[in-house]
Amino acid sequence: PDLGLTQLFADPNLIENLKKNPKTSEMMKDPQLVAKLIGYKQNPQAIGQDLFTDPRLMTIMATLMGVDL
Rank of each mutant, 00 (worst) to 15 (best):
P1N: 11
D2N: 12
D2Y: 02
G4E: 13
G4T: 15
G4I: 15
L5F: 15
L5Q: 05
L5E: 04
T6Y: 08
T6M: 14
Q7I: 12
Q7R: 08
Q7L: 11
L8W: 08
L8I: 14
L8A: 08
L8G: 02
F9I: 05
F9V: 04
F9W: 09
F9L: 11
F9S: 02
F9D: 01
A10T: 12
A10D: 12
A10C: 07
A10R: 11
D11M: 03
D11T: 04
D11Y: 02
D11E: 08
P12S: 06
P12T: 06
P12G: 06
N13L: 08
N13A: 10
N13V: 04
L14D: 01
L14P: 01
L14T: 06
I15V: 08
I15S: 01
E16H: 09
E16K: 06
N17T: 13
N17Y: 14
L18K: 00
L18F: 02
L18A: 02
L18N: 00
L18M: 03
K19N: 05
K20S: 13
K20C: 07
K20Y: 07
K20W: 06
P22M: 04
P22Q: 05
P22K: 06
P22C: 06
K23W: 09
K23M: 11
K23Q: 14
K23T: 08
K23G: 06
T24L: 10
T24P: 00
T24A: 02
S25D: 03
S25W: 03
S25N: 08
E26G: 08
E26S: 08
E26H: 11
E26K: 07
M27H: 04
M27Y: 11
M28L: 07
M28S: 01
K29C: 05
K29S: 09
K29A: 07
K29R: 10
K29E: 08
K29Y: 04
K29W: 04
D30R: 00
D30V: 01
D30N: 03
P31K: 09
Q32T: 12
Q32C: 09
L33Y: 03
L33D: 00
L33K: 00
L33W: 05
L33E: 00
L33I: 05
V34K: 03
V34Y: 03
V34Q: 05
V34P: 01
V34A: 04
V34F: 03
V34N: 03
A35Q: 12
A35P: 00
A35F: 04
A35T: 10
A35R: 10
K36F: 06
K36I: 12
K36C: 04
L37T: 00
L37F: 03
I38W: 05
I38T: 08
I38Y: 06
I38S: 07
G39Q: 13
Y40I: 10
Y40H: 04
Y40C: 04
K41Y: 12
Q42D: 15
Q42R: 06
Q42V: 11
Q42F: 07
Q42C: 08
N43M: 04
N43K: 05
P44Y: 04
Q45N: 14
Q45A: 13
Q45I: 10
Q45K: 12
A46W: 11
A46V: 10
I47G: 05
I47A: 09
I47K: 03
G48P: 12
G48N: 14
G48C: 11
G48T: 15
G48V: 15
G48M: 15
G48R: 14
Q49G: 10
Q49F: 12
D50R: 03
D50N: 05
D50P: 03
L51Y: 09
L51T: 06
L51A: 10
L51M: 14
L51E: 05
L51W: 11
F52S: 09
F52E: 11
T53M: 10
D54H: 01
P55G: 07
P55C: 08
R56S: 05
R56E: 05
R56L: 10
L57K: 00
L57P: 00
L57C: 03
M58R: 14
M58N: 08
M58S: 10
T59S: 07
T59Y: 13
T59I: 12
T59D: 05
T59H: 11
T59P: 03
T59E: 08
T59V: 14
T59R: 07
M61F: 11
M61H: 04
M61D: 00
M61E: 01
A62N: 12
A62P: 01
A62M: 14
A62D: 09
T63I: 15
T63F: 15
L64Q: 03
L64M: 07
L64A: 05
L64Y: 04
L64C: 03
M65V: 08
M65W: 07
M65S: 09
M65R: 08
M65Q: 10
G66L: 08
G66S: 08
G66I: 06
G66H: 09
V67C: 08
V67M: 15
V67G: 14
D68Q: 02
D68N: 05
D68A: 02
D68E: 04
D68L: 02
L69V: 13
L69F: 06
